[in-house]
Design a protein around this nucleic acid. Structure first.
Length: 552
RNA sequence: UGGGUUAUGGUGUAACGGUAGCACUACAGAUUUUGAUUCUGUCUGUCUAGGUUCGAAUCCUGGUAACCCAACCA
Protein backbone atom coordinates (compact mmCIF):
# COMPACT_ATOMS: atom_id res chain seq x y z
CA UNK A 1 0.00 0.00 0.00
CA UNK A 2 2.20 2.78 -1.24
CA UNK A 3 0.49 6.08 -0.89
CA UNK A 4 1.91 8.28 -3.64
CA UNK A 5 2.23 11.84 -2.53
CA UNK A 6 1.03 13.97 -5.38
CA UNK A 7 3.55 16.17 -7.11
CA UNK A 8 3.35 19.92 -7.31
CA UNK A 9 3.35 21.48 -10.75
CA UNK A 10 7.08 22.21 -10.70
CA UNK A 11 7.92 18.63 -9.78
CA UNK A 12 5.69 17.46 -12.60
CA UNK A 13 7.57 19.64 -15.07
CA UNK A 14 10.90 18.35 -13.82
CA UNK A 15 9.80 14.72 -13.94
CA UNK A 16 8.39 15.16 -17.42
CA UNK A 17 11.67 16.70 -18.61
CA UNK A 18 13.77 14.04 -16.94
CA UNK A 19 11.63 11.20 -18.25
CA UNK A 20 11.77 12.63 -21.74
CA UNK A 21 15.54 12.69 -21.52
CA UNK A 22 15.60 16.43 -22.03
CA UNK A 23 18.22 16.72 -19.29
CA UNK A 24 20.32 14.13 -17.51
CA UNK A 25 20.09 16.17 -14.31
CA UNK A 26 18.69 19.50 -13.31
CA UNK A 27 20.26 22.72 -12.12
CA UNK A 28 18.30 25.43 -10.31
CA UNK A 29 19.36 28.72 -8.87
CA UNK A 30 18.38 31.13 -6.13
CA UNK A 31 18.99 34.65 -7.51
CA UNK A 32 18.58 37.40 -4.91
CA UNK A 33 19.53 40.98 -5.59
CA UNK A 34 21.87 42.00 -2.75
CA UNK A 35 19.91 45.10 -1.86
CA UNK A 36 18.07 44.00 1.27
CA UNK A 37 17.45 41.24 3.74
CA UNK A 38 15.75 37.97 2.98
CA UNK A 39 12.23 37.42 4.29
CA UNK A 40 9.93 34.46 4.78
CA UNK A 41 8.75 34.82 1.17
CA UNK A 42 12.30 34.19 0.01
CA UNK A 43 12.43 31.07 2.12
CA UNK A 44 9.63 29.65 -0.02
CA UNK A 45 11.74 30.28 -3.09
CA UNK A 46 14.84 28.89 -1.39
CA UNK A 47 13.06 25.72 -0.30
CA UNK A 48 11.63 25.31 -3.78
CA UNK A 49 14.90 25.79 -5.64
CA UNK A 50 17.08 23.79 -3.30
CA UNK A 51 14.35 21.25 -2.60
CA UNK A 52 13.68 20.55 -6.26
CA UNK A 53 17.34 19.99 -7.04
CA UNK A 54 17.84 17.83 -3.95
CA UNK A 55 14.83 15.69 -4.74
CA UNK A 56 15.96 15.00 -8.30
CA UNK A 57 19.67 14.72 -7.66
CA UNK A 58 20.55 18.05 -9.21
CA UNK A 59 22.35 21.09 -7.90
CA UNK A 60 21.54 24.68 -7.00
CA UNK A 61 23.59 27.80 -7.52
CA UNK A 62 23.43 30.91 -5.44
CA UNK A 63 23.60 33.80 -7.84
CA UNK A 64 23.54 37.40 -6.80
CA UNK A 65 21.69 39.46 -9.34
CA UNK A 66 23.90 42.49 -8.93
CA UNK A 67 23.29 44.53 -12.04
CA UNK A 68 22.34 47.76 -10.32
CA UNK A 69 25.36 49.13 -8.44
CA UNK A 70 23.53 52.01 -6.80
CA UNK A 71 21.29 49.84 -4.62
CA UNK A 72 23.55 46.92 -3.85
CA UNK A 73 26.10 46.23 -1.19
CA UNK A 74 28.27 43.45 0.22
CA UNK A 75 26.55 43.85 3.59
CA UNK A 76 23.50 42.29 1.99
CA UNK A 77 25.54 39.59 0.31
CA UNK A 78 26.77 38.44 3.69
CA UNK A 79 23.39 38.46 5.37
CA UNK A 80 21.82 36.56 2.48
CA UNK A 81 24.45 33.85 2.65
CA UNK A 82 24.06 33.56 6.41
CA UNK A 83 20.28 33.24 6.14
CA UNK A 84 20.38 30.54 3.47
CA UNK A 85 22.85 28.49 5.47
CA UNK A 86 20.87 28.95 8.64
CA UNK A 87 17.85 27.56 6.83
CA UNK A 88 19.95 24.50 6.19
CA UNK A 89 20.87 24.77 2.53
CA UNK A 90 24.22 24.78 0.79
CA UNK A 91 24.71 26.03 -2.76
CA UNK A 92 26.94 24.27 -5.27
CA UNK A 93 28.37 27.50 -6.64
CA UNK A 94 28.38 31.08 -5.56
CA UNK A 95 28.04 33.24 -8.65
CA UNK A 96 27.34 36.86 -9.44
CA UNK A 97 25.70 38.35 -12.49
CA UNK A 98 28.61 40.77 -12.40
CA UNK A 99 30.92 37.81 -13.11
CA UNK A 100 29.33 37.81 -16.54
CA UNK A 101 29.63 41.47 -17.46
CA UNK A 102 32.24 40.79 -20.15
CA UNK A 103 30.17 37.99 -21.63
CA UNK A 104 27.02 40.06 -21.46
CA UNK A 105 28.78 42.89 -23.26
CA UNK A 106 29.79 40.44 -25.97
CA UNK A 107 26.17 39.30 -26.24
CA UNK A 108 25.11 42.90 -26.74
CA UNK A 109 27.65 43.26 -29.53
CA UNK A 110 26.24 40.14 -31.17
CA UNK A 111 22.79 41.63 -31.11
CA UNK A 112 24.00 44.89 -32.60
CA UNK A 113 25.80 42.99 -35.34
CA UNK A 114 22.62 41.12 -36.14
CA UNK A 115 20.80 44.42 -36.43
CA UNK A 116 18.80 43.56 -33.33
CA UNK A 117 19.93 46.34 -31.01
CA UNK A 118 20.47 50.06 -31.32
CA UNK A 119 21.70 52.99 -29.33
CA UNK A 120 18.98 55.49 -28.50
CA UNK A 121 19.75 59.10 -27.52
CA UNK A 122 16.21 59.77 -26.35
CA UNK A 123 15.56 60.86 -22.79
CA UNK A 124 13.65 58.52 -20.53
CA UNK A 125 10.61 60.77 -20.92
CA UNK A 126 10.81 60.54 -24.70
CA UNK A 127 11.19 56.80 -24.53
CA UNK A 128 8.18 56.52 -22.23
CA UNK A 129 6.13 58.77 -24.52
CA UNK A 130 6.83 56.59 -27.55
CA UNK A 131 6.22 53.39 -25.64
CA UNK A 132 2.44 53.58 -26.06
CA UNK A 133 0.09 52.09 -23.50
CA UNK A 134 -1.25 48.60 -22.96
CA UNK A 135 -4.10 49.47 -25.30
CA UNK A 136 -2.23 51.59 -27.84
CA UNK A 137 0.85 50.63 -29.84
CA UNK A 138 4.10 52.53 -29.41
CA UNK A 139 6.06 54.40 -32.05
CA UNK A 140 9.60 53.97 -33.33
CA UNK A 141 12.35 56.17 -32.00
CA UNK A 142 14.17 58.29 -34.63
CA UNK A 143 17.35 56.46 -33.63
CA UNK A 144 15.91 53.06 -34.41
CA UNK A 145 17.28 53.02 -37.94
CA UNK A 146 20.93 53.70 -37.14
CA UNK A 147 23.41 51.58 -38.99
CA UNK A 148 25.19 48.67 -37.38
CA UNK A 149 28.51 50.53 -37.65
CA UNK A 150 27.13 53.60 -35.97
CA UNK A 151 25.58 51.52 -33.18
CA UNK A 152 28.85 49.66 -32.65
CA UNK A 153 30.72 52.95 -32.43
CA UNK A 154 28.22 54.56 -30.06
CA UNK A 155 27.96 51.53 -27.77
CA UNK A 156 31.74 51.39 -27.59
CA UNK A 157 31.76 55.04 -26.58
CA UNK A 158 29.10 54.40 -23.96
CA UNK A 159 31.33 51.75 -22.48
CA UNK A 160 34.33 54.05 -22.57
CA UNK A 161 32.57 56.62 -20.46
CA UNK A 162 32.15 59.26 -23.13
CA UNK A 163 28.56 59.96 -22.08
CA UNK A 164 26.85 60.98 -18.91
CA UNK A 165 24.20 58.95 -17.07
CA UNK A 166 20.98 58.92 -19.04
CA UNK A 167 22.44 60.33 -22.21
CA UNK A 168 22.19 57.13 -24.18
CA UNK A 169 20.86 53.60 -23.80
CA UNK A 170 21.14 50.41 -25.77
CA UNK A 171 17.81 48.95 -26.80
CA UNK A 172 16.78 45.64 -28.31
CA UNK A 173 15.07 46.13 -31.66
CA UNK A 174 11.92 44.05 -31.46
CA UNK A 175 8.48 45.52 -32.07
CA UNK A 176 7.09 48.84 -30.84
CA UNK A 177 3.54 47.62 -31.45
CA UNK A 178 3.89 44.36 -29.53
CA UNK A 179 1.00 43.55 -27.17
CA UNK A 180 3.56 42.71 -24.51
CA UNK A 181 4.93 46.05 -23.34
CA UNK A 182 8.23 44.43 -22.48
CA UNK A 183 8.80 43.55 -26.11
CA UNK A 184 8.54 47.19 -27.23
CA UNK A 185 12.28 47.69 -27.74
CA UNK A 186 13.31 47.16 -24.11
CA UNK A 187 16.35 48.96 -22.78
CA UNK A 188 19.13 46.44 -22.24
CA UNK A 189 22.06 48.64 -21.17
CA UNK A 190 22.11 51.93 -19.34
CA UNK A 191 24.88 54.28 -18.29
CA UNK A 192 25.60 54.51 -14.56
CA UNK A 193 28.82 56.10 -13.44
CA UNK A 194 28.64 54.30 -10.13
CA UNK A 195 30.94 52.15 -8.04
CA UNK A 196 29.96 48.51 -8.11
CA UNK A 197 30.48 46.46 -4.95
CA UNK A 198 32.42 43.83 -6.90
CA UNK A 199 33.58 45.25 -10.23
CA UNK A 200 34.51 48.60 -8.76
CA UNK A 201 34.86 51.24 -11.43
CA UNK A 202 35.56 48.93 -14.32
CA UNK A 203 32.16 49.54 -15.87
CA UNK A 204 30.00 52.57 -16.38
CA UNK A 205 27.36 50.74 -18.35
CA UNK A 206 25.27 48.04 -16.71
CA UNK A 207 22.89 45.48 -18.18
CA UNK A 208 19.24 45.58 -17.20
CA UNK A 209 17.61 42.64 -15.40
CA UNK A 210 16.10 41.26 -18.60
CA UNK A 211 19.41 41.25 -20.40
CA UNK A 212 21.25 39.68 -17.49
CA UNK A 213 18.97 37.13 -15.92
CA UNK A 214 18.19 34.72 -18.72
CA UNK A 215 21.71 34.84 -20.10
CA UNK A 216 23.14 34.22 -16.64
CA UNK A 217 20.85 31.22 -16.32
CA UNK A 218 22.02 30.05 -19.70
CA UNK A 219 25.71 30.51 -18.88
CA UNK A 220 25.23 28.36 -15.78
CA UNK A 221 23.20 25.76 -17.69
CA UNK A 222 20.25 26.32 -15.39
CA UNK A 223 17.58 23.91 -16.55
CA UNK A 224 14.67 25.22 -14.51
CA UNK A 225 14.64 28.89 -13.65
CA UNK A 226 11.79 29.42 -11.25
CA UNK A 227 10.53 32.82 -10.23
CA UNK A 228 7.38 34.56 -9.09
CA UNK A 229 4.27 35.35 -11.09
CA UNK A 230 5.04 38.98 -11.84
CA UNK A 231 7.80 37.80 -14.17
CA UNK A 232 5.42 36.02 -16.49
CA UNK A 233 5.50 38.86 -19.05
CA UNK A 234 9.29 38.73 -18.96
CA UNK A 235 9.38 35.15 -20.15
CA UNK A 236 8.80 36.10 -23.75
CA UNK A 237 11.79 38.43 -23.66
CA UNK A 238 13.85 35.87 -21.75
CA UNK A 239 13.21 33.37 -24.51
CA UNK A 240 13.81 35.95 -27.25
CA UNK A 241 17.34 36.75 -26.06
CA UNK A 242 18.23 33.09 -25.65
CA UNK A 243 16.92 32.33 -29.08
CA UNK A 244 18.62 35.26 -30.85
CA UNK A 245 21.90 34.56 -29.10
CA UNK A 246 21.53 30.85 -29.75
CA UNK A 247 22.70 29.86 -26.28
CA UNK A 248 21.74 27.13 -23.80
CA UNK A 249 17.96 27.17 -23.53
CA UNK A 250 17.16 27.67 -19.86
CA UNK A 251 13.43 27.85 -19.18
CA UNK A 252 11.54 30.06 -16.82
CA UNK A 253 8.61 28.83 -14.73
CA UNK A 254 6.55 30.97 -12.41
CA UNK A 255 4.84 30.31 -9.07
CA UNK A 256 2.73 32.46 -6.76
CA UNK A 257 4.72 34.27 -4.10
CA UNK A 258 3.99 33.76 -0.43
CA UNK A 259 1.75 36.23 1.36
CA UNK A 260 0.98 35.81 5.03
CA UNK A 261 -1.61 37.28 7.36
CA UNK A 262 -0.73 40.01 9.85
CA UNK A 263 2.44 41.08 8.09
CA UNK A 264 3.73 42.75 4.95
CA UNK A 265 6.21 41.22 2.58
CA UNK A 266 7.29 43.89 0.14
CA UNK A 267 10.84 45.08 0.44
CA UNK A 268 9.69 48.67 0.14
CA UNK A 269 7.30 48.38 3.08
CA UNK A 270 9.79 46.52 5.23
CA UNK A 271 12.33 49.22 4.54
CA UNK A 272 9.85 51.85 5.71
CA UNK A 273 9.26 49.97 8.96
CA UNK A 274 12.99 49.97 9.61
CA UNK A 275 13.78 53.48 8.45
CA UNK A 276 10.86 55.10 10.21
CA UNK A 277 11.58 53.34 13.47
CA UNK A 278 8.48 51.19 13.75
CA UNK A 279 10.80 48.30 14.47
CA UNK A 280 14.38 48.09 15.70
CA UNK A 281 16.19 47.00 12.56
CA UNK A 282 15.92 44.24 10.00
CA UNK A 283 16.32 41.53 12.61
CA UNK A 284 13.65 42.90 14.93
CA UNK A 285 11.72 39.81 16.05
CA UNK A 286 8.52 41.33 14.71
CA UNK A 287 9.88 41.49 11.19
CA UNK A 288 9.04 38.72 8.71
CA UNK A 289 12.70 38.60 7.75
CA UNK A 290 14.61 35.39 8.18
CA UNK A 291 16.93 37.19 10.58
CA UNK A 292 13.92 38.45 12.52
CA UNK A 293 12.46 34.97 12.84
CA UNK A 294 15.85 33.65 13.84
CA UNK A 295 16.20 36.22 16.60
CA UNK A 296 12.68 35.54 17.75
CA UNK A 297 13.61 31.91 18.30
CA UNK A 298 12.22 30.15 15.25
CA UNK A 299 13.94 26.96 14.19
CA UNK A 300 15.10 26.36 10.62
CA UNK A 301 13.20 23.08 10.58
CA UNK A 302 9.93 24.80 11.39
CA UNK A 303 10.31 27.20 8.48
CA UNK A 304 11.29 24.44 6.08
CA UNK A 305 8.32 22.41 7.20
CA UNK A 306 6.05 25.39 6.76
CA UNK A 307 7.27 25.88 3.20
CA UNK A 308 6.61 22.21 2.54
CA UNK A 309 3.06 22.42 3.87
CA UNK A 310 1.95 25.56 2.07
CA UNK A 311 2.62 23.89 -1.24
CA UNK A 312 3.16 25.75 -4.47
CA UNK A 313 0.77 26.79 -7.20
CA UNK A 314 0.05 29.70 -9.48
CA UNK A 315 -2.84 31.30 -7.69
CA UNK A 316 -2.58 34.25 -5.34
CA UNK A 317 -2.66 33.23 -1.72
CA UNK A 318 -2.72 34.61 1.78
CA UNK A 319 -1.41 32.00 4.17
CA UNK A 320 -2.72 31.95 7.68
CA UNK A 321 -0.02 32.88 10.20
CA UNK A 322 -1.42 30.12 12.43
CA UNK A 323 0.02 27.51 10.07
CA UNK A 324 3.52 28.89 10.61
CA UNK A 325 2.90 28.93 14.35
CA UNK A 326 1.64 25.36 14.21
CA UNK A 327 4.84 24.24 12.48
CA UNK A 328 6.89 26.11 15.05
CA UNK A 329 5.13 24.64 18.08
CA UNK A 330 5.22 21.19 16.56
CA UNK A 331 9.02 21.39 16.43
CA UNK A 332 9.58 23.27 19.68
CA UNK A 333 7.30 20.99 21.67
CA UNK A 334 9.70 18.14 21.01
CA UNK A 335 12.96 20.03 21.30
CA UNK A 336 12.57 22.93 23.74
CA UNK A 337 13.70 22.45 27.32
CA UNK A 338 11.05 23.09 29.94
CA UNK A 339 11.72 25.75 32.55
CA UNK A 340 9.68 27.85 34.92
CA UNK A 341 9.44 31.60 34.77
CA UNK A 342 7.01 33.98 36.42
CA UNK A 343 6.29 36.98 34.27
CA UNK A 344 4.03 38.96 36.58
CA UNK A 345 5.04 37.87 40.07
CA UNK A 346 3.08 37.87 43.28
CA UNK A 347 4.34 36.18 46.43
CA UNK A 348 2.91 32.92 47.72
CA UNK A 349 3.76 32.00 51.32
CA UNK A 350 3.39 28.47 52.58
CA UNK A 351 2.70 29.06 56.26
CA UNK A 352 3.25 25.48 57.41
CA UNK A 353 6.54 25.00 55.51
CA UNK A 354 9.75 25.20 57.49
CA UNK A 355 11.49 28.59 57.47
CA UNK A 356 14.72 28.70 55.51
CA UNK A 357 14.41 25.15 54.18
CA UNK A 358 15.24 24.36 50.56
CA UNK A 359 14.22 21.15 48.82
CA UNK A 360 15.52 20.25 45.38
CA UNK A 361 12.78 18.70 43.33
CA UNK A 362 13.10 16.69 40.17
CA UNK A 363 11.31 18.05 37.12
CA UNK A 364 11.20 16.80 33.55
CA UNK A 365 12.84 18.83 30.79
CA UNK A 366 10.65 17.70 27.95
CA UNK A 367 7.39 16.07 26.94
CA UNK A 368 9.07 12.68 27.30
CA UNK A 369 12.30 11.39 28.86
CA UNK A 370 14.61 12.19 25.97
CA UNK A 371 15.53 15.60 27.36
CA UNK A 372 16.13 14.28 30.86
CA UNK A 373 15.42 15.96 34.18
CA UNK A 374 16.70 18.75 36.34
CA UNK A 375 16.49 19.72 40.00
CA UNK A 376 14.74 22.89 40.98
CA UNK A 377 14.79 24.57 44.38
CA UNK A 378 11.58 24.85 46.37
CA UNK A 379 10.90 26.66 49.63
CA UNK A 380 8.47 28.49 51.86
CA UNK A 381 8.16 31.54 49.63
CA UNK A 382 7.41 31.26 45.94
CA UNK A 383 6.72 33.67 43.13
CA UNK A 384 3.58 32.76 41.23
CA UNK A 385 1.76 34.39 38.35
CA UNK A 386 -0.57 37.19 39.44
CA UNK A 387 -3.18 36.00 36.97
CA UNK A 388 -3.22 32.57 38.62
CA UNK A 389 -5.10 33.89 41.64
CA UNK A 390 -8.65 35.11 41.64
CA UNK A 391 -10.22 36.55 44.76
CA UNK A 392 -13.61 35.66 43.36
CA UNK A 393 -13.05 32.74 41.02
CA UNK A 394 -14.76 32.51 37.66
CA UNK A 395 -16.71 29.40 36.86
CA UNK A 396 -14.56 26.42 35.86
CA UNK A 397 -11.56 28.15 37.44
CA UNK A 398 -9.00 25.52 38.44
CA UNK A 399 -6.34 27.80 39.73
CA UNK A 400 -5.81 29.51 43.06
CA UNK A 401 -8.61 31.21 44.96
CA UNK A 402 -9.51 31.44 48.65
CA UNK A 403 -10.02 27.90 49.89
CA UNK A 404 -8.97 26.33 46.57
CA UNK A 405 -6.29 23.69 46.11
CA UNK A 406 -3.80 23.40 43.27
CA UNK A 407 -0.59 21.53 42.61
CA UNK A 408 2.62 23.45 42.35
CA UNK A 409 4.30 21.84 39.35
CA UNK A 410 6.75 19.09 40.37
CA UNK A 411 6.14 19.95 44.05
CA UNK A 412 3.25 19.84 46.47
CA UNK A 413 -0.45 20.48 46.55
CA UNK A 414 -1.27 23.71 48.38
CA UNK A 415 -4.49 25.15 49.71
CA UNK A 416 -5.07 28.88 49.80
CA UNK A 417 -5.93 30.07 53.30
CA UNK A 418 -5.84 33.86 53.01
CA UNK A 419 -4.37 36.78 51.10
CA UNK A 420 -3.13 40.30 51.75
CA UNK A 421 -4.00 43.48 49.90
CA UNK A 422 -2.51 46.95 49.98
CA UNK A 423 -4.47 50.18 50.22
CA UNK A 424 -4.91 50.27 46.44
CA UNK A 425 -6.64 46.91 46.53
CA UNK A 426 -3.72 45.13 44.91
CA UNK A 427 -2.92 41.63 46.13
CA UNK A 428 0.48 41.65 47.83
CA UNK A 429 0.74 38.12 49.18
CA UNK A 430 -1.16 34.87 49.18
CA UNK A 431 -1.03 32.46 52.09
CA UNK A 432 -1.30 28.72 51.76
CA UNK A 433 -0.72 25.52 53.63
CA UNK A 434 0.82 22.54 51.89
CA UNK A 435 0.25 18.82 52.18
CA UNK A 436 3.61 17.13 52.88
CA UNK A 437 2.32 13.74 51.70
CA UNK A 438 1.38 15.17 48.27
CA UNK A 439 4.96 15.48 47.07
CA UNK A 440 5.32 15.06 43.35
CA UNK A 441 6.09 11.51 42.34
CA UNK A 442 5.26 10.09 45.76
CA UNK A 443 1.83 11.47 46.41
CA UNK A 444 -0.14 9.49 49.00
CA UNK A 445 -2.49 12.30 49.90
CA UNK A 446 -5.34 11.07 47.78
CA UNK A 447 -6.18 14.65 46.91
CA UNK A 448 -7.16 15.31 43.31
CA UNK A 449 -6.77 18.80 41.95
CA UNK A 450 -7.62 20.17 38.50
CA UNK A 451 -4.96 22.84 38.32
CA UNK A 452 -1.19 22.79 38.19
CA UNK A 453 0.80 25.99 38.39
CA UNK A 454 4.34 27.06 37.68
CA UNK A 455 6.39 28.91 40.28
CA UNK A 456 9.89 30.08 41.17
CA UNK A 457 11.46 29.95 44.64
CA UNK A 458 11.83 33.50 45.96
CA UNK A 459 15.37 33.28 47.35
CA UNK A 460 16.64 31.42 44.29
CA UNK A 461 14.79 33.41 41.63
CA UNK A 462 16.81 35.24 39.00
CA UNK A 463 15.50 38.52 37.67
CA UNK A 464 15.12 38.77 33.91
CA UNK A 465 13.78 41.02 31.22
CA UNK A 466 11.22 39.36 29.00
CA UNK A 467 10.14 40.72 25.64
CA UNK A 468 6.67 39.66 24.65
CA UNK A 469 6.24 39.83 20.90
CA UNK A 470 2.93 39.68 19.15
CA UNK A 471 1.85 40.11 15.53
CA UNK A 472 3.06 43.36 14.00
CA UNK A 473 -0.32 44.31 12.51
CA UNK A 474 -3.86 44.35 13.83
CA UNK A 475 -5.38 43.38 10.50
CA UNK A 476 -4.94 40.30 8.35
CA UNK A 477 -3.82 42.07 5.22
CA UNK A 478 -2.40 45.52 5.99
CA UNK A 479 -1.30 46.00 2.39
CA UNK A 480 -4.89 45.84 1.16
CA UNK A 481 -6.40 48.17 3.77
CA UNK A 482 -7.38 51.75 3.07
CA UNK A 483 -4.72 54.37 3.66
CA UNK A 484 -1.23 53.83 4.99
CA UNK A 485 -0.42 50.27 5.99
CA UNK A 486 1.50 51.65 8.96
CA UNK A 487 -1.74 52.88 10.49
CA UNK A 488 -2.57 49.26 11.17
CA UNK A 489 0.45 48.43 13.30
CA UNK A 490 -0.43 46.60 16.49
CA UNK A 491 0.49 48.98 19.34
CA UNK A 492 1.15 45.97 21.56
CA UNK A 493 3.40 44.13 19.17
CA UNK A 494 6.11 44.44 21.79
CA UNK A 495 5.52 44.46 25.55
CA UNK A 496 8.65 44.52 27.68
CA UNK A 497 8.58 43.02 31.15
CA UNK A 498 11.48 44.22 33.27
CA UNK A 499 10.89 42.28 36.44
CA UNK A 500 10.20 38.70 35.63
CA UNK A 501 11.63 35.93 37.79
CA UNK A 502 13.09 32.84 36.24
CA UNK A 503 14.38 29.62 37.74
CA UNK A 504 18.14 29.63 38.48
CA UNK A 505 19.05 27.09 35.79
CA UNK A 506 18.31 29.76 33.21
CA UNK A 507 21.43 31.77 34.06
CA UNK A 508 23.35 29.36 31.87
CA UNK A 509 21.05 29.78 28.87
CA UNK A 510 22.82 30.24 25.53
CA UNK A 511 21.68 31.80 22.27
CA UNK A 512 21.18 28.32 20.83
CA UNK A 513 18.85 27.09 23.58
CA UNK A 514 15.11 26.96 23.13
CA UNK A 515 12.89 26.91 26.18
CA UNK A 516 9.31 26.34 26.96
CA UNK A 517 8.43 28.44 29.98
CA UNK A 518 5.76 26.14 31.29
CA UNK A 519 2.25 27.42 30.65
CA UNK A 520 3.61 30.67 29.16
CA UNK A 521 5.07 29.83 25.78
CA UNK A 522 8.35 29.30 24.01
CA UNK A 523 11.26 31.61 24.71
CA UNK A 524 14.89 32.09 23.78
CA UNK A 525 17.74 34.24 24.98
CA UNK A 526 18.14 37.51 23.07
CA UNK A 527 21.49 38.56 21.69
CA UNK A 528 21.30 41.75 23.79
CA UNK A 529 21.50 39.72 27.00
CA UNK A 530 24.58 39.86 29.23
CA UNK A 531 25.68 37.64 32.08
CA UNK A 532 24.07 39.88 34.68
CA UNK A 533 21.09 40.97 32.61
CA UNK A 534 19.10 38.12 31.17
CA UNK A 535 16.76 38.94 28.30
CA UNK A 536 14.32 36.43 26.86
CA UNK A 537 12.25 36.80 23.72
CA UNK A 538 8.89 35.13 23.43
CA UNK A 539 9.02 33.05 20.27
CA UNK A 540 5.35 32.08 20.34
CA UNK A 541 2.71 31.49 22.97
CA UNK A 542 1.29 28.10 23.80
CA UNK A 543 -2.14 27.38 22.44
CA UNK A 544 -4.49 28.83 24.96
CA UNK A 545 -8.03 27.51 25.04
CA UNK A 546 -8.66 28.90 28.49
CA UNK A 547 -8.24 32.56 27.60
CA UNK A 548 -10.51 32.01 24.63
CA UNK A 549 -13.13 30.62 26.93
CA UNK A 550 -12.75 33.56 29.29
CA UNK A 551 -13.40 36.01 26.46
CA UNK A 552 -16.44 34.10 25.30
C1' U B 1 -10.59 49.74 -26.23
C1' G B 2 -5.16 45.57 -25.35
C1' G B 3 -2.29 41.39 -23.54
C1' G B 4 -1.16 37.82 -19.75
C1' U B 5 -2.29 34.69 -15.29
C1' U B 6 -5.68 32.47 -11.85
C1' A B 7 -10.54 30.74 -9.79
C1' U B 8 -11.95 23.86 -5.10
C1' G B 9 -14.54 24.54 2.74
C1' G B 10 -12.55 30.27 6.88
C1' U B 11 -7.00 29.46 4.93
C1' G B 12 -3.77 26.57 1.91
C1' U B 13 -3.33 22.40 -1.22
C1' A B 14 -4.78 17.41 -3.91
C1' A B 15 -7.96 14.70 -7.22
C1' C B 16 -4.70 14.63 -14.63
C1' G B 17 -13.16 12.26 -17.55
C1' G B 18 -14.93 7.72 -12.73
C1' U B 19 -16.33 7.92 -4.46
C1' A B 20 -14.21 15.88 -3.82
C1' G B 21 -9.18 13.98 -0.08
C1' C B 22 -5.24 16.07 3.21
C1' A B 23 -3.30 19.90 6.51
C1' C B 24 -4.14 24.35 9.33
C1' U B 25 -8.12 27.05 11.68
C1' A B 26 -12.84 26.76 14.37
C1' C B 27 -16.00 23.82 17.53
C1' A B 28 -17.07 19.42 20.82
C1' G B 29 -15.32 15.35 23.83
C1' A B 30 -11.41 11.92 26.29
C1' U B 31 -6.63 11.84 28.68
C1' U B 32 -3.28 15.16 31.26
C1' U B 33 1.27 17.12 37.64
C1' U B 34 1.66 22.60 31.49
C1' G B 35 -6.31 24.86 30.54
C1' A B 36 0.07 22.63 26.64
C1' U B 37 0.99 17.94 24.27
C1' U B 38 -1.65 13.43 22.73
C1' C B 39 -6.24 11.02 21.11
C1' U B 40 -11.39 11.02 19.08
C1' G B 41 -15.17 13.43 16.64
C1' U B 42 -18.01 17.64 14.12
C1' C B 43 -18.93 21.84 10.76
C1' U B 44 -17.94 24.05 6.16
C1' G B 45 -16.11 23.58 -0.66
C1' U B 46 -15.65 22.77 -6.94
C1' C B 47 -16.95 31.41 -9.31
C1' U B 48 -21.39 31.52 -12.73
C1' A B 49 -24.73 30.13 -17.05
C1' G B 50 -25.04 26.80 -20.76
C1' G B 51 -23.01 22.53 -23.58
C1' U B 52 -20.38 17.57 -24.66
C1' U B 53 -20.58 12.73 -21.99
C1' C B 54 -23.32 6.82 -19.21
C1' G B 55 -20.43 10.08 -16.01
C1' A B 56 -17.47 16.91 -15.54
C1' A B 57 -13.82 20.28 -10.30
C1' U B 58 -11.50 18.29 -14.73
C1' C B 59 -13.28 18.99 -21.70
C1' C B 60 -16.00 23.10 -24.82
C1' U B 61 -18.63 28.06 -25.17
C1' G B 62 -20.23 32.63 -22.92
C1' G B 63 -20.09 35.53 -18.59
C1' U B 64 -18.01 37.25 -13.68
C1' A B 65 -14.07 38.27 -10.25
C1' A B 66 -8.98 38.84 -8.67
C1' C B 67 -3.92 39.71 -9.82
C1' C B 68 0.13 41.29 -13.26
C1' C B 69 2.10 44.46 -17.58
C1' A B 70 3.35 51.41 -19.91
C1' A B 71 11.06 51.89 -13.94
C1' C B 72 17.51 53.91 -17.67
C1' C B 73 14.44 48.62 -10.51
C1' A B 74 14.85 43.43 -9.82
Amino acid sequence: MSEEKSLNFLEEIVETDLNAGKYSSIITRFPPEPNGYLHIGHSKSICLNFGLAAKYGGSTNLRFDDTNPVTEDTEYVESIKEDIQWLGFQWSNEFYASDYFDQLYAFALQLINKGLAYVDDSTSEEIAALKGTPTEPGKDSVNRSRTIEENLQLFQEMKEGKYKDGEKVLRAKIDMAHTNMLMRDPIIYRIKHAHHHRTGDKWCIYPMYDFAHGQSDSIENITHSICTLEFIPHRELYDWFISQLNIFPSHQYEFARLNMTYTVMSKRKLLQLVNEGFVNGWDDPRMPTISGFRRKGFTPASIRNFCERIGVAKRENLIDLSLLEFCLREDLNLTAKRAMAVLDPVKLIIDNYEDGKTEYLKSENGPDDTLGHREIPFGKELWIEREDFMEEPAKKWFRLAPGAMVRMKSAYIVKCTSFEKDEKGEITAIHCTYFPESKSGQDTSGIAVKGTMHWVSVPHAVKAEVRLYDRLFRVENPASEEGDFKDYINPESLVVIHNAYVEPSLVSATLQDRYQFIRKGYFCLDKDATSNHLIFNRTVTLKDTWSKEMKA
